[in-house]
Amino acid sequence: MAVDLGQFDHPSWLTVAGTGLGYALILAVLTLTMFIVPWLVFSAL
């Protein structure tokens, strides 16, 4: 069965990738500010 990879050239796939990347970036920033920064502050005391 031949797979046509041309179907993934549609701009909607770029939107899906951008949404996933943006979501991951927001999660990383929230994790940093809610867990890592307070842990560093309290461990320094």
Rank of each mutant, 00 (worst) to 15 (best):
Thr19Ser: 06
Gly6Leu: 00
Gly6Ser: 06
Thr33Ile: 10
Ala2Trp: 00
Ala44Gln: 04
Leu25Ile: 14
Gly18Arg: 01
Val3Trp: 12
Pro38Gly: 04
His10Pro: 00
Val37Ala: 01
Val41Gly: 01
Val29Ala: 12
Val29Glu: 04
Ala44Asp: 10
Val3Phe: 14
Val16Cys: 01
Phe8Ile: 07
Met34Cys: 07
Gly18Asp: 01
Thr15Phe: 13
Leu45Glu: 10
Ala44Glu: 09
Leu5Phe: 10
Ala2Pro: 00
Gln7Leu: 12
Leu25Val: 11
Ile26His: 06
Thr15Glu: 11
Gly20His: 11
Ala2Phe: 01
Ser43Phe: 08
Leu27Asn: 06
Ser43Pro: 00
Phe35Gln: 09
Ile26Thr: 07
Ala44His: 07
Trp39Phe: 06
Thr31Phe: 15
Met34Asp: 03
Val37Glu: 01
Val3Gln: 10
Tyr23Gly: 15
Gln7Lys: 13
Thr19Pro: 00
Ile36Gln: 09
Pro11Thr: 04
Phe35Leu: 07
Ala44Leu: 07
Leu30Arg: 03
Ser12Gln: 10
Thr33Ala: 05
Val37Pro: 00
Thr15His: 13
Gly20Lys: 04
Ala44Tyr: 05
Ala17Asp: 04
Ser12Ile: 10
Val3Thr: 11
Val41Trp: 14
Gly22Leu: 14
Leu27Gln: 09
Thr19Phe: 09
Val29Cys: 06
Leu40Ala: 02
Ala17His: 11
Ile36Trp: 07
Ala24Leu: 15
Phe8Arg: 06
Pro11Val: 07
Val3Glu: 02
Trp39His: 03
Asp4Lys: 10
Pro11Glu: 09
Ala24Pro: 03
Thr31Pro: 02
Thr19Trp: 07
Met1Arg: 13
Leu30Gln: 05
Pro11His: 11
Pro38Ala: 12
Asp9Ser: 04
Thr31Asp: 15
Met34Thr: 09
Leu5Gln: 02
Met34Ile: 13
Gly6Val: 02
Phe8Ser: 02
Pro11Arg: 12
Asp9Val: 03
Ile26Lys: 15
Ala44Lys: 07
Phe8Asp: 04
Pro11Asp: 08
Met1Lys: 09
Leu32Asp: 06
Asp9Ala: 08
Leu30Pro: 01
Leu5Arg: 03
Trp13Asp: 02
Ile36Phe: 11
Tyr23Ser: 15
Phe8Met: 06
Val41Leu: 11
Thr31Trp: 15
Trp39Cys: 02
Phe42Glu: 09
Gln7Ser: 12
Thr19His: 03
Asp9Gln: 07
Thr31Arg: 12
Leu5Ile: 06
Thr15Gly: 13
Ile26Phe: 13
Ile36Ser: 07
Phe8Ala: 05
Val29Asn: 02
Leu14Phe: 10
Asp9Ile: 03
